[in-house]
């Protein structure tokens, strides 16, 4: 039986110039297209007296809008549209990754010794191959490093069958006969949120959205959150605030990626162990996880934005009428 295909990185299908088209990017386009078509159909003919489809749309989109608007408090209606876009994009992406065919339909690619491939396994080969014709010093260094690394990631590699085999057949690798792994399977689609580029991108957008709404609603006094010269303690607290806000990018990105990628690995393993019936409960679980992760992302963004706005307003109310004027104008 074929080994389950697992790769942390999204695989490159093709490149346009130097721009890599990965399978998760293709999936993102599919999700985008779906959202565009849905949005266009749902929004093209809204009537005061709704038909069935509009009732459904109002229930889902309007319901989410109301929920996040209320969660966002006084200024909720300003950032609710962005939040529900986060929610719908993430949930649809998560669910897209669960569709049959995503991750299983693809093609076999003959292994090449080029640096464009992103798979974990492949890099080891590259590193190993470098040794045979490049700088000998570099060779030794990398080699020992790879050795340490493989110890550290033993647990991980043990279920990435290929990598495990690779380690054992170290000799083969050096001779350049990669007969044992053959062509590499590259799936055509991959859940957009099972790619760190997507999730970190969303985290970055969320970060900038928090700063933007904080600044635009609370006004100039929002800056005091990070730069407060009244006392050294406040200055230090400001730095901490800035670091904590920046770290939100990582926490947003890795939380979403970790959950969804772990789900896909779990499903792959379950399907590998026994392909019939066994994965079904896990599919149910992953559908739920996909929804919950979307909710978590959206709710955390709402809460952080609300806190940022409230913080700025609180500060402006506390000291200085000049700041007060600023944010009311």
């Amino acid at each position: 039986m074929a080994q389950p295909h697992i790769s942390v990185a999204a695989e490159t299908i093709t490149t346009i110039g130097s721009f890599p088209i990965t399978n998760s990017l293709i999936s993102t386009w599919v999700v985008m297209t779906f959202l565009f078509i849905f949005g266009w159909f749902a929004g093209k003919n809204v009537k005061k007296r709704p038909d069935r489809f509009q009732v459904f749309v109002e229930l889902v989109v309007g319901g989410m809008y109301d929920f996040f608007r209320k969660l966002g408090g006084k200024h909720g209606d300003k950032f609710a549209p962005l939040i529900i876009t986060f929610f719908f994009f993430i949930v649809i992406s998560n669910w897209f990754g669960l569709l049959p065919g995503v991750g299983t339909i693809g093609f076999f690619e003959k292994q090449k010794d080029d640096h464009t491939s992103n798979s974990l396994f492949f890099h080891k080969v590259v590193a190993g191959d470098n040794t045979s014709h490049d700088n000998v010093n570099l060779l030794d260094k990398t080699h020992t490093e790879i050795g340490n690394e493989s110890e550290a990631t033993d647990a991980y590699e043990s279920f990435i069958g290929e990598a495990g085999e690779q380690k054992q057949d170290g000799k083969d690798k050096h001779t350049g006969k990669d007969s044992h792994h053959g062509p590499k399977f590259v799936p055509l689609f991959r859940g957009p949120t099972a790619d760190l580029n997507t999730t970190l991108g969303l985290g970055i957008i969320a970060f900038f959205a928090i700063q933007y709404f904080g600044l635009s609603i609370a006004g100039v006094s929002y800056i005091k959150r990070f730069l407060d010269f009244r006392s050294p303690i406040y200055l230090f607290v400001g730095i901490l605030e800035a670091v904590s806000d920046l770290s939100k990018i990582l926490s947003f990105g890795f939380r979403l990626f970790g959950n969804i990628f772990a789900g896909e690995v779990l499903l792959a393993i379950m399907a590998f162990l026994f392909a019939f019936l066994l994965p079904i409960p896990f599919y149910g679980l992953e559908i739920f996880v996909g929804l919950v992760q979307g909710l978590v992302f959206a709710m955390l963004t709402t809460v952080f934005t609300t806190i940022a706005v409230a913080h700025g307003e609180h500060m402006s109310g506390h000291h200085g009428d000049h700041a007060h004027e600023g944010h009311h104008s």
Binding site: A9, T22, M32, L120, H123, D195, L196, N197, L200, G201
Partner: peptide
């Protein structure tokens, strides 16, 4: 190894 590619990151943000 994590698959982080600045160009793709930007592409996803734009998307």
């Amino acid at each position: 190894e994590l698959g982080i590619e600045p160009v793709l990151l930007l592409a996803q943000i734009i998307n």
